[in-house]
Amino acid sequence: MEILNLEGAEDTPKIMLDKANGIFEISGRSLPEDSAEFYQPVLDWLEAYGASPNPKTEFVFKLEYFNTASSKLILDILSKLEDIDGMTVTWYFHEDDEDMEEAGEEFSELVDIPFEFKTY
């Protein structure tokens, strides 16, 4: 499967989806002008991945900031992950960032996927 690798920018996150090496990560800042358009390739990639996933998948969110339009798309991503067997989410937050910790907890309450929380 092809690797999806997007360089981060000041308003878009860095994204690495690499089935062969087992790397699934979204990190940085997310406040694109059009969040639906920006995340569509990620949703498409996950749709294809879901057809023949690795036995175990650890999906990492390491976000410094995301806007509300992105939060809607993060939930869409999580909904896709929910349908894939062997899925776990690791939600990183900066150790003094309670809002990011709480955001992760809220997402974990909205989908049926095991979440692990880690600080950086």
């Binding site: 969040s35 639906a36 509300t68 339009a69 809607k72 809220e106 909205l110």
Partner: peptide, 18 residues
Amino acid sequence: YKEIIKNTALSDKGGAGL
């Protein structure tokens, strides 16, 4: 917040209503 994020689609302007 949780109610809106779960039940509302993005507007045609790309806003989440949040």
